[in-house]
Amino acid sequence: MRYAMAVDTRKCVGCGDCVVACQTENNVPLGYARDWIVEIVKGSYPNTLKVHFESRRCHHCDDPPCVRVCPTGASHIVEGGIVKVTPEECIGCGACIEACPYEARYFHPDGYVDKCTFCDHRVKNGQDPACVEVCPTHCLIFGDLDDPESPVSKVLKEREYYTLAPDAGTHPNLFFLK
């Protein structure tokens, strides 16, 4: 089992619903977020202008530097390749925050590092992550890469995509559909 998410940039409108749904689902304290939106503008007025939005979060890398640098083992990989943090084991050293090329981690005010969990509590229960389930544009697609019939496997077979910071060698599992 290898969980992954694809973000369809042809459809995302950058509304931020994924951010709020994550906050209310996971009780993320106000002032913090596990996912966020980036607007990318290219070209110039009026003929070559291109804009797209990326809904970003932890990339749940196959080779996650955050796990490698964690001195206590608080950062770890669970079933399906989901990268998680055990708050009680985290000493708040911040090594993982520095190591992550995607800026996907933040200091929780309760004294540990927090991040996206792909809503594994929901996934275990057969549900999609909260951000996927709420998205009004259906631009987030989640599933198991080991299952060729999963929505994410299918869409990655059909569509062109890119990943962020491919040179970092992290083998991320967050894909952006062109």
Binding site: V67, V69, P71, T72, G73, E89, C93, G94, A95
Partner: peptide
């Protein structure tokens, strides 16, 4: 600080957590 710490603990994180 983090660079130093993480360099010294590369093996540790993979084998056995310190505070488990």
């Amino acid at each position: 600080f983090i660079k130093i710490t993480s360099a010294g603990l590369i093996g540790a994180a993979i084998s056995k957590p310190v505070f488990n």
